[in-house]
C-alpha cells in the first residue's frame, strides 16, 4: 500500500506516493531525484542527509516520508536562488571548505539553519551547531572558517536571510555542558 503525500519542497508543491517504511531521504533521492542530500550512515549519526523540515534541520534518514504530509521541506538544491550561490556556498568554494564533497550538502543546510538562528556565532557556537555533521576530509578547519566568513557577508547580515517565515530568530544559544 502506498500513501499519497503532499508537501512543499524548495518552494514548490510536490506530491508523491510512498510506502510507510520509506524514509524521507529515500523518497527525496529515489522518487523525487533530489539527490543532493546524501546517505552516509542511514541512522542519524553523520548528518549528510540533513534537510530542513518545517524550518528545522533534521536527518532525513530518521523521518518517514509519510510524516511529511503538509510539511515544508528545503534541501541543498533550494539554497542557491535565481542563479546565484548563497553566501555560504560561495564561502565554501572560496575557502576550500570541501574535499570529496559528500558531506557538503548536509553541512550547508545545517550551517544555513545555524546562521538563521544565530547570525553572528562564535567559533565554539559554530562547532557545537555543526557537531551533528561529520566530515572526514577537511579536519573541519576550513568549514568553520567558511561559516565565519559567510556570517560576515552583507547578504548574510541582511534581514532577508535571517528572517525567513517559520524560522526562529533567537540569537543566543548557551553552550551545552558536556565533559
Amino acid at each position: 500500500m502506498k500513501t499519497h503525500v503532499t508537501t512543499t519542497i524548495n518552494g514548490g508543491s510536490v506530491e508523491f506516493l510512498c510506502q510507510p517504511r520509506q524514509s524521507l531521504l529515500e523518497v527525496l533521492r529515489d522518487e523525487l531525484s533530489l539527490t543532493g542530500c546524501k546517505e552516509g550512515c542511514n541512522n542519524g549519526n553523520c548528518g549528510a542527509c540533513t534537510v530542513m523540515l518545517d524550518g528545522l534541520p533534521v536527518n532525513s534518514c530518521l523521518v518517514l516520508a509519510v510524516e511529511a504530509e503538509g510539511a515544508v521541506i528545503e534541501t541543498v538544491e533550494g539554497i542557491a536562488e535565481q542563479g546565484h550561490l548563497h553566501p555560504l556556498q560561495q564561502c565554501f568554494l572560496e575557502g576550500a571548505a570541501l574535499q570529496c564533497g559528500i558531506c557538503t550538502p548536509g553541512f550547508l543546510v545545517a550551517a544555513k539553519a545555524l546562521l538563521e538562528k544565530n547570525p553572528q556565532p562564535s567559533e565554539q557556537e559554530i562547532r557545537f551547531g555543526l557537531a551533528g555533521n561529520l566530515c572526514r576530509c577537511t579536519g573541519y578547519d576550513k568549514i568553520v572558517r567558511a561559516v565565519q566568513a559567510a556570517a560576515q557577508t552583507p547578504e548574510a547580515q541582511s534581514p532577508g536571510l535571517s528572517k525567513r517565515p517559520g524560522l526562529l530568530s533567537r540569537t543566543t544559544q548557551t553552550e551545552a555542558k558536556s565533559l
Binding site: L53, N59, A110, L114, A131
Partner: peptide
C-alpha cells in the same frame, strides 16, 4: 541529545 538535527525531532 544527538546533534541539532536529532534535537529538532
Amino acid at each position: 541529545i544527538g546533534g541539532w538535527q536529532i534535537q529538532s525531532r
